[in-house]
Write a protein that binds this DNA or RNA. Structure first.
Length: 707
DNA sequence: GGTAGAGCGACGGTAGTAGG
DNA sequence: CCTACTACCGTCGCTCTACC
């Protein structure tokens, strides 16, 4: 967090990085005696420096190490402009700003609900038989009065985007300024309002020409979307400093306002929005909007965006009966992804794969899961394109395509980072999964969970797959959360209704009926909500167990190296025989990397099946390369370690080993999706399981493990 | 004019290193 | 082998600069 307190003046740049207790609040209380119109005032006092969630800032400038690139020192750049100030003199100035004929907006009396409905129907922004929601009307009246700031908390899908449109139906010369966190949301908002017939524009780096700036200042657009960084840029300052533009601003709307608190540490522009009010004055109402704004988050709005302390709070909460919460503790290593096996069960078909978003906050793991699920799809005979990945590190083309495919349903499982944490809507999402909760906040989870069930009448399950170290027994608790969010810890550790925990931490207002009676709220109340853990059948020969133990002993380095060299030769051969001509762009290392082969060589004697081999390697064409690699490992172990280690330790004798020998020695490798031998394995196991189950008896050397 | 890449910012996690 | 310490990485959207 760069600034936990507001700077004393606009001209102070760079901001001072130490604390001062005598800095006055930037937002003086206004009209303290005026009665609350709707629900309540923000009860948050201006946070004292000691309330800051972070440790005091120190001047790290002088202790930072020098960094070099191409032999030259990289010097840290400071912004070449002062936020919210116009371009320096001596540079080219814009002159398309002054429009004297624009009339300043004046406070207006509130109008009735019925009249608002009529206006909305006439403007065509509300279907004929519908009526506006009360909070929309209340907020619009407050904006018209131009006397109060407003903080709106409402669940997703309640029509929050209507808030900046309604006042404009009365204020014929007014315009709304909407601060949006992401480019995608700005473009979406622009497009939505244009469809309503409302001239709107999203100003961003790729769209900020001189003509556009002039048009905005001249009042051509009724809704102007901008990211916080653009808001403080010199280009936008030309608009903000225009008195004619200031006169026609209906309100400043901060959409997804919870991100002010969540992103303040890495998007400092969010912490400087309060400077905007010093430029345009405090008479223009500021409206903060989000589905999740508990009091700590609302306090940061006062600090960072200059929301007045006496702002009116409209709190509808964020309860959505169509959303269920499921908490599951992980039973396997995170890297194995075995706890996600319910996503793609045996025999699943494309149509029956639930439309799912899986959030992982570690990009490397997110990518590994993509590989894993794609391999799994191929094994199941399904196209790997059913799963895709989306995060900010990808090219914009990929990002665009992944969102489009997921929306259309071509992709059924989308693996995502925080990039699509808030605001983006997809139809048909029935499952939202959070894989690992370290570092997650309840607010962020609530936003992610809210991506589900966006269609009328639909439902969605939010599944938290929780690492074991978050269990109460491991020491962490809501009372002693360490670095974790107490809210999320209470949610995953509670044995009571999860919705009650959400209500308490997100400060949802009381509801007439208990959530449990209205919906299938959570896995604590409805254990059947938990997806069944799939049973995987394995065949295990107890006689072989003792030999397996010996097989797991660490191999001498020399043998590891010999196995590695043999695998290198195998790779070279298979590449030359089968890949070189067909895929000249592929080199041998594109098939299986050196690192993977080294890893495989180290644990060669423990690789007793394709299932064990698969997580150890990162092979894009698993169905074609997995079985022959397994076979090559078997042969290498027999050759180098010895007969006993190579076959008996696998406990499969002539089963899989024999079959794969056949493949390696010229047997047909079916390369099409689902026709690989992995698929045969699966189908064989499934059949065996079915037969055993129907017969009601198992062999003594067979048992079931939960997977 | 278009494009690629650095930099902004805090801080928890992880890998590597040194010392007992 | 364990502990303490240090350095570095990653996460985001946007703007700016250098270069073509």
């Amino acid at each position: 967090m760069s600034e936990n307190f507001p700077p004393t003046s606009v001209s102070q740049w760079p901001p001072i990085r130490h604390r001062s207790s005598d800095i006055p609040p930037v937002t003086p209380a206004r009209n303290p005696n005026q009665p609350s119109l709707i629900l309540s005032r923000l009860d948050a006092a201006f946070p004292s420096p000691s309330d800051s969630p972070r440790t005091p800032l120190t001047d790290t400038k002088n202790i930072k190490r020098r960094r070099y690139q191409n032999g030259y020192e990289i010097r840290q750049q400071t912004p070449s402009y002062k936020p919210y100030t116009k371009q320096r003199t001596g540079r080219k100035r814009q002159h398309a700003i002054a429009f004297d004929d624009i009339q300043a907006l004046q406070p207006q009396r509130e109008i009735t609900h019925q009249r608002w409905d009529e206006l909305a129907h006439t403007a065509g922004i509300l279907p004929e038989n519908n009526t506006l929601r009360q909070f929309q009307v209340d907020c619009a009246n407050l904006v018209l009065s131009r006397s109060q700031d407003v903080c709106v908390i409402a669940p997703t899908g309640q029509g929050k985007s209507m808030l900046w449109v309604l006042p404009l139906l009365i204020q014929r010369t007014g315009c709304s300024l909407v601060v949006t966190p992401y480019t995608s949301l700005g473009l979406e908002g622009q497009s939505r309002n244009l469809n309503m017939g409302l001239p709107s524009v999203f100003v961003h780096a790729g769209q900020k020409g001189t003509k556009l700036i002039g048009d905005i200042a001249g009042g051509r657009y009724r809704v102007i979307f901008a990211c916080p960084e653009m808001l403080e840029s010199p280009a936008f300052a030309e608009i903000l400093h225009s008195t004619s533009f200031q006169a026609c601003i209906s309100g400043i709307y901060v959409d997804e306002a919870h991100l002010v608190n969540e992103s303040a540490s890495w998007r400092p522009a969010y912490t400087r929005i309060h400077l905007l009010r010093q430029v345009i004055g405090h008479r223009i109402p500021l409206i903060a909007i989000s589905a999740t704004l508990p009091s700590t988050y609302r306090r940061s709005l006062i600090t960072h965006i200059g929301l007045h302390e006496d702002a009116i709070l409209i709190n509808l909460g964020n309860f959505r009966p169509e959303l269920s919460t499921v908490v599951m503790y992980m039973e396997h290593e995170a890297n194995s992804f075995k706890d996600l096996v319910f996503l793609l069960r045996h025999g699943v078909r494309k149509e029956s794969i639930e439309k799912t978003i899986v959030y992982i906050d570690d990009l490397e793991m997110l990518t590994a899961l993509l590989w894993s699920l794609q391999s799994r799809l191929v094994t199941l005979g399904l196209p790997p394109t059913l799963v895709d990945i989306h995060h900010a590190g990808l090219s914009s083309d990929h990002q665009e395509k992944s969102l489009k495919d997921f929306e259309s349903g071509e992709t059924r499982i989308l693996l995502a980072s925080e990039k699509i944490g808030a605001g983006i809507n997809f139809s048909g999402v029935s499952q939202v999964i959070q894989y690992l909760i370290r570092g997650l906040t309840l607010v962020r989870w609530s936003q992610r969970h809210g991506r589900g069930a966006r269609d009328p009448g639909s439902t969605a399950v939010g599944i938290l797959l929780v690492e074991k170290k978050m269990q109460k027994e491991e020491g962490l608790s809501p009372e002693a959360p360490g670095n974790e969010d107490p809210g999320i810890l209470e949610l995953v550790q509670s044995t009571d209704c999860c919705q009650a925990v959400l209500d308490r931490h997100l400060e949802n207002p009381p509801r007439p009926n208990s959530p449990a009676s209205a919906s299938r709220c959570c896995s604590n109340c409805y254990p059947s909500l938990r997806p069944a853990r799939e049973h995987q059948w394995i065949m295990e020969n107890p006689e072989a167990n003792a030999k397996q133990t010996s097989a797991r002993r660490k191999l001498p380095e020399q043998q590891v190296d010999e196995i590695y060299q043999q695998l290198i030769k195998w790779r070279q051969k298979i590449w030359r025989d089968e890949w070189m001509e067909k895929w000249p762009g592929y080199g041998p290392k594109s098939l299986v990397s050196d690192a993977d082969l080294e890893c495989v060589a180290k644990s060669a004697t423990t690789i007793r099946s394709l299932d064990i081999l698969q997580p150890l390697v990162h092979i894009a064409h698993w169905s074609q390369l997995g079985p022959p690699l397994f076979s090559a490992i078997t042969i290498a172990v027999i050759d180098i370690v010895g007969e006993g280690e190579g076959t008996q330790s696998r406990g499969l004798g002539g089963g899989v080993g024999q079959r794969l020998e056949g493949v390696a020695s010229g047997g047909e490798v079916e390369s099409g999706p689902g026709k690989g031998s992995m698929g045969a394995d699966v189908s064989r196991e499934g059949t065996r399981a079915t037969v055993a189950r129907s017969a009601g008896k198992l062999q003594p050397w067979e048992h079931i493990i939960t997977f």
